[in-house]
Amino acid sequence: MRRFAILAAGVVLAAGSALADRLEAQAAAVTDAAAIAPGQSFTVALALTMPRDAYVYWRNPGDAGLPTTIRWSLPEGFEAGEIEWPLPEIFDEPPLRSFGYKNGVLLPVRIQAPERLDPENGRVELRFRADWLICREACVPGGADLAVTLPVAEAPRPDAEGARRIAAARAKVPPAAEGWTGRMEMDERTLTLSFTPPEDFRLPARASVVFLPYREGVVEPAAAQRLRRANAGFELALTRDVMRVDPGDALRGALWIEGPEDRIQALEIELRRANADG
């Protein structure tokens, strides 16, 4: 019955209804574990499926929208990591630019089980609250209370289908920029980022390079980022946001490099502050 209701909603949306009230995401909890063991880590992910061309936002939504959030209610001793955010799409709607996921997304979170784990009935329940803003021309807030219940065993057992879906999402998460160093300098208007890649890295001749900070309010999302090649690497000059949010000692974000033939490379990098003023 429930499955039927979801299908029916999909048909209505496919028919082209623009009614904001029907703009809904279906949320599900996905896990890569069929059974967990004490002291082991595993993954629980929020899977959002949505009508065609609908989207939700990245951790830094940009000029519009709100990030999707997850709030955990875990049994004692369990610890949840950060959301591992796949690289978003860039939505340009001049003069605005925002970042998000069209047509669905899966957001993995690593969970660490405690060393001592002996539940009475042999199962643990991991609950979380997810909230998002789903948009397609108009926007509607959505939310769901989700849970996964897993048996506790001597040795962990994987859930193959869940593991496959989570691995596919993780493949899109920008990997840490191994061997890179990054520094930032800031004055009143500009944030200048210096990147020093490892020796074997070559920046393509006509590369388009953009840095997307994880934090909102640090730079103007839609402002052009000026690339300057330097001896050991390259620099990007970013326009500071009107909010003038001070990133503090370090700024984390995704470095997006688009080379010839539309090949995109994305890396996660942390830039350390070089000057103290500004």
């Binding site: 799409e89 340009d92 388009s208 953009v210 839609a222 402002a223 052009a224 688009e258 539309d262």
Partner: peptide, 16 residues
């Protein structure tokens, strides 16, 4: 991604 991303990015920057 959409094609012509660089062009779109430049256009957006200029428009902005």
């Amino acid at each position: 991604r959409t094609t012509g991303w660089l062009a779109a990015a430049l256009a957006a920057g200029i428009a902005w």
